[in-house]
């Protein structure tokens, strides 16, 4: 709906309401405003999402149509609608980083990204690293180095390490610790995780 100040009207506010009240003068002025708005490529009001909306999210290479509200997080869509439960819901637990996913190749916390923000972007979750019988080297590295215990934080660590190696294929121990500082493992499997990262660094995975 066209709202706000008409630059030529001396500050009078024209709204749908006073348009509907409909004096001749108001109608003429509103028509002028509407015309101005129509010349703009996309009137702001048409892009405001205020309730449920169906959007397309590209997850692990496939498009999915999902209904979301503005407050729906990317994490909620992935877990509750697409059944991609690798990324973890951290509302009641403090395991920073267990909700890590890649959005346009960069690591982010899915729990603090709105689903609407992810529209049009390429989302990758840990499930994408399964491969076709050929898991991602980060996954096989975690297995080899026994870099997990309870496993809750593991998918997030795997995704953060994937992002780190994509950015810097040959990180030093310090760079590994810096890059993975946003993930916590309450079981304390850091030794296996850093060994895994160091081996992948040497192997250039």
């Amino acid at each position: 709906m066209v709202q706000g100040k008409d630059p030529g009207s001396g500050g009078v506010i024209f709204t749908r309401r006073n348009f509907l009240k409909g004096s001749g003068a108001a109608m003429a002025a509103t028509a002028a405003v509407t015309q101005t708005a129509a010349q703009q490529p996309a009137a702001a009001a048409t892009r405001v999402v205020s309730g449920a909306k169906e959007i397309t999210l590209n997850v692990n290479g496939a498009d999915h149509k999902v209904a979301v509200e503005p407050r729906t997080t990317l994490l909620e869509v992935l877990r509750d609608k697409l059944n991609l439960t690798g990324c973890k819901d951290l509302k009641d637990v403090y395991v920073d980083g267990a909700d890590t996913v890649l959005v346009d190749g960069k690591a982010t916390y899915a729990g603090v990204m709105l689903a609407l923000q992810a529209e049009g972007k390429k989302i990758r979750t840990v499930e994408s690293l399964r491969g076709d019988g050929q898991p991602d080297p980060v996954v096989t590295g975690f297995v080899k180095h026994d870099a997990m215990q309870c496993g809750f934080c593991t998918p997030g660590f795997v995704m953060a390490m994937r992002a780190l190696l994509d950015k810097q294929p040959n990180p030093t121990l310090d760079e590994i610790r810096e890059g993975l500082g946003g993930n916590i493992c309450r079981c304390g499997t850091y030794d296996g995780i850093t060994k895994c990262a160091l081996e992948l660094a040497k192997g250039g995975a």
Binding site: D96, K106, Y109, A163, L164, G179, G182
Partner: peptide
Amino acid sequence: ASAIRAIQIQQY
């Protein structure tokens, strides 16, 4: 910037 040790915060 380098003291903010989390790739998620660094990248977003």
